[in-house]
Design a protein around this nucleic acid. Structure first.
Lengths: 150, 150
DNA sequence: TTGTCTGCAAAAGCTTTGCATGAAT
DNA sequence: ATTCATGCAAAGCTTTTGCAGACAA
C-alpha cells in the first residue's frame, strides 16, 4: 500500500480505508486514464478486493471533491473519472474505436469567452467533447476502398 | 389541429396520430424552446391530452429522426428537445437562473477543426455547453454588494 | 383488413441512499 | 469510545421495451 497514496488521502482529510486506497492506487497504476465507476469496480473485484459498487461511487465522489480526480461525461450515458493532473483539458473521442485524446487550446478558450461576453454572460466553465475519426480509423489515401483506380 | 403540423408529419412519412400532432403542436406553440420529455408530458396532461410518457419518448425520437426536432444534453441529467430551425447552434446556460441562450460561432468551429486536425482526427461533430452568469444574474457595477465605498 | 401505434407496466442502466454492521482514530 | 465508512439492498431518475388492445390508412 503506497505511502504516496496514503499521504494524498490524509492531506485531503480522508481516513485511510481499504476502498479509498485501492481506488486511488488503481488510478495511479492503470494505463486507461478514463474509467467509469463500473470499470473501477470490476477491476478491483478481479483483484480480489472486497468492495461494493456503492462504495466505489462514494469514494470517487470524495476523490473528485478533494481535487484528486476529475470527472466528465464523455458519452452521455455515464461519468468517467481520471487523475487530476492540474492542467484543465477537454476531450476528443473516436466515433469508431472509442479512443480518447486530451487537448487544451487557448485560442478555443478565447473564443468561448468572446462568445459568452457577446451574449452578456460571465463565463464560468464549459463542457466540451469533440467527435471524429482518429488517425487509425479514418480512411487513408492508400486505403483500397478510397484509392482511385489507376 | 393545425394542418401545417399534419403536413409536416406526413412529409416525414409518419402517420397522423393524436400523440404526434399534440407533441408537435406543443413545440410550435410554447415559449420555452428547450423542453425535456417530462416537460412535454406534463404540459399535455395538463391540457387533458390522454398520452403516456413512453409514447412521448417514442414520438420525440421519431421527430428527431425526421429532423423536425433536435435534442441535446444541457445539464447532464436529461435530454432536452427543441424545434430544428435549420442553423446548427450550441448553448450557453446561466448557472444561476437556468436561462438558455443559443449561439453559433464560425471562429470557434474553426478552432475545433484545427485542434482535431492537430491530433490526427477527422472531426465529425461535437457537444458543447458553456456555463456562466447571464446579464441578469451577474453582479453589476452599480450593485450594492460590489460597489466600492466612496 | 392489415400493419402501425398507444398505454400501461415492467425493466434497464447509472447513481444515490437507508440502515445496521464494522473499521479507523 | 466515538465517529465515520462500508456493504448490501432498495430506491431514484431518465429512458427503453414487451405486449395486448386500439387506431390509421
Amino acid at each position: 500500500m503506497s505511502s504516496q497514496v496514503v499521504e494524498e488521502l490524509q492531506s485531503a482529510g480522508l481516513r485511510i480505508t481499504t476502498p479509498r486506497v485501492k481506488v486511488l492506487e488503481f488510478f495511479r497504476s492503470t494505463e486507461s486514464r478514463h474509467c467509469s465507476a463500473e470499470d473501477v469496480f470490476r477491476h478491483l473485484v478481479e483483484e480480489k478486493v472486497e468492495i461494493g459498487l456503492a462504495t466505489v461511487y462514494r469514494v470517487l465522489g470524495q476523490l473528485v471533491d478533494a481535487g484528486i480526480l476529475t470527472s466528465s461525461m464523455l458519452d452521455s450515458t455515464k461519468l468517467v473519472y481520471e487523475l487530476n493532473q492540474g492542467k484543465r483539458h477537454d476531450h476528443i473521442i473516436c466515433v469508431n474505436c472509442g479512443r480518447v485524446d486530451e487537448f487544451s487550446d487557448p485560442l478555443m478558450d478565447g473564443r468561448q469567452k468572446a462568445v459568452a461576453d457577446g451574449l452578456g454572460y460571465v463565463l464560468t466553465g464549459h463542457q466540451l467533447v469533440l467527435h471524429g475519426y482518429c488517425s487509425a480509423c479514418r480512411p487513408k489515401p492508400q486505403d483500397p476502398v478510397t484509392r482511385k483506380k489507376a
